[in-house]
Write a protein that binds this DNA or RNA. Sequence first.
DNA 1: GTAGGGTTAG
Length: 800
Amino acid sequence: MDQLKQTHCQMITTARIHDTYAASRLLNFCAVSESGDVNYALKLFKSTPEPNSFMWNTLIRAKASSPNPQEALLLYIDMRRLGVIPGKHTFPFVLKACSNLNTIKSIKQVHAHVLKFGLDLDLHIVNGLIRGYSVSFGLDNARKVFDEASERNLSIWTTMICGYAQNDFADEAIKLFDYMISNRYEPNGVTLSSVLSACAQSGRLDLGRKIHVYVEEKGIELGVILGTALVNMYAKNGAIPKAKQCFDGLKEKNIATWNAMICGLAVHGHANEALEFFKTLDKRRMMPNNITLVGVLSACCHAGLYDYGCEIFYSMKKIYGIDPKIEHYGCMVDLLGRAGRLLEAEELIKGMVWKADVVVYGALLSACKEYGNIEVAERVVKEILVLDPDNHGAYVVLSNMYAEAGRWEDVSQRRNVMKEGSLKKTPGLSSVDDILQNPDFELPISNLPTNSTSSFVLLNENNTIPGWTFQGEVRYVTAGANVSLPRNGHAIMLGQDGKINQTFTANGDLIQYLLTFTLSLASDNCKANVSLVVSAPDSSAEFSFTQKYGKETWEVYGQQLGTWGNGESVNLILQSQVTDTDPNSTCWPVVDTLFLKTLGPLAQNSDNLLPNGGFELGPAFLDSSGEGVLLISEPSLVESALQQWTIMGTVKYINSKNHFIPEGKAAIEIVSGVSAGIQTAKTLSDGSNYNLEFMLGDANDSCSGEFIVGVGAGSSAQNFSLQSNGSGAVKKYSMTFKGGPSLTQITFLSHKTTQREDGVFCGPVIDGVVLRASHGHKSNLQPILIALVFLAILQMSELL
DNA sequence: GTAGGGTTAG
């Protein structure tokens, strides 16, 4: 800076300072260099009569990574006010500022400006947008930018993968990584750091190992970040010796590397070793940070080291200069709670400068449960419900505590409070509830023979099953050598005239109930044609095995039971039905793992005329529904399990956990071949132009071949095809059509039958169906984005 | 003359 100042003087005395180009070089050094001085840069800037866009960019860049990133945004606003046109270098810095801001969410407004200046094709800017949305405005938006990018490079893939990993969507991160590999991109160390983090979160030691081998084979340098990610991956997955080996082998370590080791050891019950590592930090002249102390305190919790934990907690400010944050208090509440010091824990929470959150209270509630302290638990539950009115878990814990203490009146009172809706559900959101009793038949029958060799025990009046009533031949099935069930355990076989039923009470204003369940057959060598009939007061559907739609011996089905209001009593009946008599048949239906999901009123989406065009609203996925949930033919819009769509043939409702989904968390795979598909209808204005957008893809389920989907909209029809190699691809299509006089129908029908190599029927994936009024002129700016621009300009002018 | 993506947490 000394030399720079001398040069600056020379430039002033020789009037060269008026050469804006030369002045900008001075500014650049001050603003960007490690040995620079941002304040000096600001003075220089202010003394420049007409700073050019380079100077603006440089200053915005400096402020974007400063402790006050909002100053970068204010500079950008000044720049606009003075009429300086931002360029392709401006927005990466402005977007960086958005990403670095913790509180103000400005990404959407900046996005609007990017569009306004026509810079949305620039890859650096696309990257900045994805990053910005990932940290502040939701992954769905980030993914939308990613999906709609005209072109992608490794950085963009990496940013999106990192976005998932950092937001705890490890499975999504890994899925996208797989997809990236299938698109033949070669990951580098930056990409792999994020993927390793995802492997650590989701227990993917297998993939983590492969990445380690890949890194070694490719000679990718194990720098401190990639090295730390690797150590963390091994440590979190419990491969402690391997973690240590990597740790020792790293040339460079920082505090994060040590934290990965300490936290990994703490989590896996090696508390004392974690503390040993912690004590070694001193010798390595490494300074612990707040995360280190979280690890140390949690190690103390796990090992019950009450005194040492307290010592660390009460001296951390003095010794390490770290103020205890809510995370540290969380550990302490846990530590005190485990030691039975519930009142002290409660006092500790009251004394915090932060507002206690659900995690802190949750730790205390667990301790209350452990020690049976109902008095404290009641106070804690009250606090939890203030913070999170929908927290059923807290009620359940308290209710169980009453039950354990024999306070049955309190139990039923609690239940009533829940039913009367002091725990109100938010409309439009779905929830999965424990509405049914014994829904997976794991509460055993009254006289389950302990050493019985029989896997099928006949129910009778002395041998009943909790929660259910039954008639006819009903058998209690236990998984074993000759019976396989979704979660092992138990299930119910419905034999001759077999029927089970259960009554539950609807709670909430007109809520729709969707049932998911698994169905298998008691013998895989079936002659007779037997089906299962599931019925409720307003609906009935018949399920039978016709084709193989998954690799398991059971299949998962979804059905809408009906819509009921508060207090209505619903009788759910499951019974066998013989459609082709064979008295020697042993081929009866076996049902298991029933799951009820409720859906509130349908939310309207302003930029899509079709509600549920993304198929996000449908039946629940079971843990065992890796192959998706089958929806059978249902011609009624009102009775369909897939909101707003009728079903032809059989379609599979698939989720992002187990399949490649073009958008959001769920999609439809048309599996039963020719003329199977989905249909919806909408009142449109007669003769007006509309635009229908949708995505056609494959589910990454090895379903390969040519997919042909016929799309009908009003009186228009068109075929769309996709050559699938079954590894997760998607194509976006659109078509225009005219609205009809009454209801206009929109139909997606498969024109081909496809089978996987293992014989399983499969087919095209449909997702992201968007219907919009078309305004005639061709614009690649979508209406929503145009609206966004106007909104943003309005907001910006308010700021000014 | 200016630019992008990464590790650790109750």
